[in-house]
């Protein structure tokens, strides 16, 4: 189903303004895309992270849906509990009329998903709860002061991988979370980028309406963490897809496919842009250009090529 902006504007925005996310942070846009993709009643849980601390500073909340905050590691565990309780109430016939056919959505940052929350996520996926887990991946622990996480790309300058004469930033490659999630043989998993909102909303709708666990990994540029201007997220999100740093992938019942711009690149209808185009305007990669670390840039390009080849092969190209 296509989404038309002229229909969407008539709906109530799921996240009220007045939250204290940084100016220009795309995470509220991601929440908007996910929650507006369906008209079912929704219940959300949120792992500790930027989104949680900034949207619910007591006594204010920006959420217009029932919402539960839970510790860093167990957003997925909490949403499975809420979902089980919902079925318990439904069996007893005690469900309020306006909560029939409710959908359950967990939000977590990359720290709460890739690192700390991965056992809860794995457990929830294995138990097969009817829920959607959305990871907004800003590639680091941005809220606690820009520490590296296992989603941080190689070469990035963070406070725990600082740049110096002996260090060029993070040395390890990113974790491939999508493959880990797909290895649970769940019905739906995908990656999205917020600039391609139509693709993101279609995937969100599919993920929410799929029976059983679903997973979305959303790209989310971080203004202070990546040291970029406040209006840069859209352009960076677009470049991440064009450079194949963040390919748009969909995995339905084990069948991999590419979507949007990534599909066009794989089909040969669009050029794959070199990774330096994506990195050159970001403060976290600035040292690679000022110190002329061409070997590290080559390392990053090789890592992107390797993962792109893998995804392309999985999608049958």
């Amino acid at each position: 189903m296509a989404f038309l902006l002229k229909d969407l504007i008539k709906k109530q925005a799921p996240l009220a303004s007045g939250h204290r996310m940084c100016a220009g942070c795309p995470a509220p846009v991601i929440v908007k895309q996910v929650l507006m993709s369906t008209d079912h009643p929704k219940v959300c849980t949120n792992a500790t992270g930027c989104l949680e601390v900034a949207t619910t500073i007591f006594p204010f909340t920006s959420w217009k849906v029932p919402w539960l905050h839970i510790a860093f590691e167990n957003s997925a565990a909490a949403v499975s509990g809420v979902e089980a309780a919902y079925h318990g109430l439904a069996n007893k016939g005690e469900l309020p009329e306006d909560m029939k056919n409710a959908k359950f959505i967990a939000f977590g940052g990359d720290g709460g998903t890739y690192d700390i929350g991965i056992q809860a996520l794995s457990g929830a996926l294995e138990r097969g709860h009817n829920m959607l887990y959305v990871c907004y991946d800003n590639e680091g622990y941005m809220n606690t002061g820009i520490q590296r996480s296992s989603a941080t790309p190689i070469g990035a300058n963070t406070t725990t991988t600082p740049v110096g004469s002996q260090s060029y930033g993070k040395r390890e490659i990113r974790k491939d979370l999508l493959s880990i999630v797909v290895a649970h043989h769940i019905p739906y998993a995908a990656t999205c980028a917020p600039h391609d909102w139509m693709d993101g909303m279609k995937k969100s709708q599919k993920a929410i309406e799929t029976e059983g666990p679903a997973f979305l990994n959303y790209f989310s540029p971080c203004i202070p963490g990546w040291k970029i201007p406040a209006d840069a997220w859209r352009k960076l999100s677009e470049l991440a897809v064009k450079t194949c740093f963040w390919p748009l992938i969909e995995v339905e019942n084990g069948k991999w496919s590419l979507t949007g711009e990534s599909k066009r690149i794989a089909d040969g209808k669009a050029e794959k842009v070199p990774a330096v185009e994506f990195m050159k305007n970001q403060g976290r990669f600035k040292h690679l250009f000022t110190q002329k670390k061409d070997d590290v840039l080559a390392l990053i390009q090789a890592d992107i090529d390797r993962s792109w080849d893998f995804y392309r092969k999985m999608a049958g190209y």
Binding site: K6, A13, S17, A23, G24, C25, P26, D231
Partner: peptide, 30 residues
């Protein structure tokens, strides 16, 4: 602009963009 605004600060009346909610707009410029 409405789709990309993180602060839900684009005011739309009867299908027309009429301005910005400057009480909440953080001025990011997206």
């Amino acid at each position: 602009c409405w789709m990309h605004c993180p602060d839900d600060s684009i005011v739309i009346e009867n299908g027309k963009v009429t301005g910005m909610d400057l009480d909440h707009c953080k001025g990011c410029g997206v």
